[in-house]
């Protein structure tokens, strides 16, 4: 099964959909930052995520799924480039879904963001990188609330963050409906629903994550 092109794509799609679910959970926790409660809800949610045993198991799946998605994505891209050794002079005027042509590019941008994100948060928790400093004092290496405030108070970081989220939205816009097609889910009755859900999902994720830096830059503490 996994030797075949369709089998590899199935794994990519399943890993991708799992990552889609993770993003919803992550966004849910991040939106707690918008509550003006000194980080009470956010700390409680983040504390639960880093201490719960079941979540720990999911964390292994998350990193596994992510690595699988990336490795297969790169493998398939290389294979696809080999499949057309001489490229066209006039390229691809065909009508296609726009974002579908740039999945590897948006994927690489998201990967770059992931590196930055891990350095700023996850590696801090592991004690590998120093905590982001700024206008508020970071209590310890688990104090993600104050780390987030310090980062989002920096306009350059915030706008770069929003930029990354827009690319994440582009990636998800094609990814969501493409995963269903790969899984064999294509029906005239449900296609519109799947595509609309994908569009709403990708906009909600990009917008949801972008709202947080905007809040901390312009509204927090005022």
């Amino acid at each position: 099964m996994l030797n075949s092109s369709i089998g590899k794509k199935l794994l990519m799609a399943l890993a991708g959909l799992f990552l889609c679910v993770f993003l919803v959970v992550h966004l849910g926790i991040n939106l707690c930052l918008l509550r003006d409660d000194g980080g009470e809800w956010f700390r409680a949610a983040a504390g639960f995520m880093s201490s719960n045993k079941i979540i720990k198991v999911f964390e292994v799946f998350l990193f596994g799924g992510l690595i699988l998605h990336i490795i297969y994505g790169i493998f398939i891209e290389i294979k696809n480039r080999i499949s057309r050794p001489i490229s066209y002079n006039k390229t691809y005027a065909s009508q296609t879904s726009y974002f579908s042509k740039y999945m590897i590019h948006t994927g690489m941008i998201i990967f770059a963001f992931l590196g930055l994100h891990l350095i700023n948060f996850y590696f801090v928790k592991l004690g590998w990188t120093p905590a982001p400093q700024g206008i508020v004092a970071v209590e310890d290496k688990h104090d993600f609330y104050n780390m987030a405030i310090n980062l989002f108070q920096n306009p350059v970081y915030s706008f770069v963050y929003i930029g990354f989220m827009i690319f994440l939205g582009f990636h998800l816009h094609h990814a969501f409906q493409s995963a269903f097609q790969t899984l064999g889910v294509n029906h005239t009755k449900y296609n519109t629903l799947i595509k609309a859900t994908g569009t709403i999902y990708s906009i909600a994720i990009a917008l949801g994550f972008s709202v947080i830096p905007v809040y901390f830059l312009f509204f927090w503490g005022k």
Binding site: K79, Q95, H174
Partner: peptide
């Protein structure tokens, strides 16, 4: 599908072209 893969065609990425 095995023959298609063996002959060196690329992988579908659902672009719809």
């Amino acid at each position: 599908v095995s023959k298609m893969d063996e002959l060196g065609f690329g992988y579908c990425s659902n672009t719809g072209a």
